[in-house]
Design a protein around this nucleic acid. Structure first.
Length: 602
RNA sequence: CGGGGCGUAGCGCAGACCGGUAGCGCACCGCGUUUGGGACGCGGGGGUCGGCGGUUCAAGUCCGCCCGCCCCGACCA
């Protein structure tokens, strides 16, 4: 490809809104252009890199028995109503009506369509197991797209769906993906760790997320160096230190003016925060079939702990959770800043605007073991000493709802947990019968018994992966593509001044030779100064740079430089093709060697 | 959805407080010089100043409403 003909242009300065390196560099190097918030065009260089990423995914999927298909981007709403996700998912789902006024859905993912295909075509155990996958555009109207390609609304994803007759089969396909995904990320030059994750809107039994560790990541992970425990903060467990047991003492009201926070309370009473109870009010939407009930949630934790909303939502089986307004808190008889469940009837009903809201009290599982806590008195300016769970109040739900924090103890080995940020570049889910049951995907087994198909679903976003590669592989001058995903392998720079036809002719013939040898070459044939050409080469970041110049020709060849190394050397004119091929092969080998068997951590 | 910021040429920005002919750098086009790390000279093109409404003799500038984009939070297969 001649740079003079390429549809894109490098920029000296990145748009002001680009903050992270991958975003700035991909824009400056002419890979991507933004159309709207979270919606991007991919120019030729990006398209070529994406195609390589996707082909790596194809190879690995095919290697574990995958068969590529394509499923639609537009789905009839009925399918999503059958799975009930039409009701469970809010504004994130793109909905519109067709010309006949029928509700339609823009695909966020394809479990429903897979289920529909399966129930139409799969009837016998002889048709299982199967693995199908596709690479398709999805739409998720994310409340806040950000960080360039890391978090977008329209994106392309490779997703695969495993279909099995039994749970052992699912386990096999799950483990096959577990390893295949490590292979894909290693081949793309991105180190990841697999962490257990929340199953979220997918439902299902077990899920792992593949996290690329980076400070710009939006997920917080808890990692244990001692035993390797790794989990998304959303579900991370930790060992709670059991408090020293005490005889329950008598309730005692104490005046605590202007102490509406736990910190202020502990300070005022000169007690540790662990001797206080914290009340957090949320409003949960809980779907009951096609109806959605709202409940006012009164969550109680020890004062030294933070609420983990995902754990709370899971304990409630809620699809949505938001902080309660003060009026809603007051409507059940509690006082914001001085609230506690003591004296609030368990069947209390509050009001949100005009709607009655049933109350549900949830306490963290450490609370019943923690005696004589200080909690609010539901009276402005007063707290209660010696509040004891069971004696003074009851909860409908006792569960682990506390967030793990830096320095907490590892749930598996007791070691110290630390937090790190990461970007989720892929995930694998054991769906089980989450979609097969409601959508009627059944097959007949050997004994003539009808059984549900057991499903798994596995996704990798290709654009996000591209961004993570760029994030990982760059320096102050520009991108540094791993050879496996580089849009081209060789950046051929011709430094031909006017009146130096010889350099131009040599460059042209070297370009032709490289192309003829099957090498992928980006040839800078523009009339630009050397500085511009070198800077653009560094910015675009192809693995190998060849410079044809009068100086190099005098030394008998062309100058060779790897983008990831500083040193340069002259390749003899006659050996250019052969040596470049050898270099590319050795770069490929460097990456191939990173492929390792990763032990499966359940 | 809450908090904050920003919309002036393709990109980066000035002009706005204090209303009076819309500017600078880069990029782009032409000619010439230059060619190993973002060259130089001369000439040139490109703007509904995010939109609508208001105030005014006069609005990029003042007022109101709306839209878009970015950041923090909420949310998130």
């Amino acid at each position: 490809m001649r740079l003079s003909k390429l549809f894109s242009q490098t920029l000296r300065e990145a748009p002001a809104e680009a903050e992270i390196s991958s975003h700035q560099l991909l824009v400056r190097a002419g890979f991507i252009r933004q159309l709207a918030a979270g919606i991007f065009s991919y120019l030729p260089l990006a398209k070529r890199a994406l195609t390589k990423i996707e082909n790596i995914m194809r190879d690995e999927m095919n290697a574990i028995g995958g068969q590529e298909i394509t499923m639609p981007v537009v789905h009839p709403a009925e399918l999503w109503q059958e799975s009930e996700r039409w009701y469970a998912i809010g504004s994130e789902m793109g909905r519109f009506k067709d010309k006949n006024n029928r509700d339609m859905v823009l695909a966020m993912t394809h479990e429903e369509v897979v289920a529909d295909l399966v129930r139409r075509d799969v009837h016998s155990y002889r048709q299982l197991p199967r693995l199908i996958y596709h690479i398709q555009t999805k739409w998720r109207d994310d409340p806040r797209p950000r960080a360039g390609l890391i978090r977008v609304r329209e994106f392309t994803m490779k997703d695969s769906y495993s279909l099995d007759a039994d749970w052992d089969g699912l386990d096999k396909q799950y483990r096959a993906h577990y390893q295949a995904y490590f292979n894909i990320f290693h081949l793309c030059g991105v180190e990841v760790i697999a962490v257990k994750s929340d199953v979220g809107m997918m439902g299902g039994k077990l899920a792992h997320e593949y996290m690329y560790l980076t400070p710009i990541g939006e997920d917080t992970l808890l990692l244990c160096d001692a035993c390797g425990y790794a989990a998304n903060r959303q579900i991370a467990r930790f060992q709670k230190t059991a408090p020293v047991s005490e005889q329950p003492l008598q309730l005692e009201k104490v005046a605590t003016p202007e102490t509406k926070t736990i910190a202020a309370l502990a300070d005022f009473l000169q007690i540790p925060q662990s001797k206080t109870a914290k009340a957090v009010f949320m409003v949960a939407k809980i779907s009951e079939g096609q109806d959605t009930a709202q409940k006012l949630v009164f969550a109680i934790l020890r004062g030294d702990m933070e609420l983990n909303e995902t754990k709370l939502a899971n304990a409630l089986v809620a699809n949505e959770l938001r902080p309660a307004h003060d009026e809603e808190i007051i409507s059940v008889g509690a006082v914001p800043g001085y609230a506690s469940p003591v004296g609030i009837p368990g069947d209390a009903v509050g009001r949100s605007e005009q709607t009655p809201l049933p109350l549900v009290v949830v306490v963290d599982d450490l609370i019943p073991q923690s005696p004589n806590l200080v909690a609010g008195a539901n009276e402005d300016g007063f707290h209660l000493r010696n509040v004891n769970y069971g004696r003074d109040y009851q909860a409908q739900i006792v569960a682990d709802i506390a967030a793990a924090q830096d320095g907490d103890s590892c749930p598996d080995c007791g070691g110290v947990l630390h937090t790190q940020r990461g970007v989720e570049v892929g995930n694998i889910f054991k769906l089980g019968t989450r979609f097969a049951e409601p959508m009627g995907c059944t097959y007949t087994d050997k004994d003539g018994v009808e059984r549900p198909v057991i499903m798994g679903s596995y996704g990798i976003g290709s654009g996000r992966l591209l961004a993570c590669i760029a994030e990982e592989h760059h320096d102050e001058h520009g991108l540094i593509w791993p050879v496996t995903v580089a849009p081209y392998h060789v950046h051929l720079v011709a430094l031909a001044g006017k009146g130096s036809d010889q350099v131009q002719q040599e460059a042209e013939s070297i370009y032709a030779e490289l192309e003829a040898a099957g090498l992928e070459v980006l040839y800078d044939d523009r009339e630009e100064s050397p500085g511009v050409k070198f800077n653009d080469a560094d910015l675009i970041g192809l693995p190998v740079r060849l410079t044809v110049s009068g100086r190099a020709l005098e030394q008998g060849g062309v100058e060779f430089k790897r983008r990831d190394q500083a040193d340069k050397r002259i390749l003899p004119r006659a050996e250019i093709v052969q040596q470049v091929k050898a270099e590319i092969a050795s770069l490929m080998k460097e990456i191939q060697e990173k492929l390792v068997e990763v032990s499966f951590a359940d």
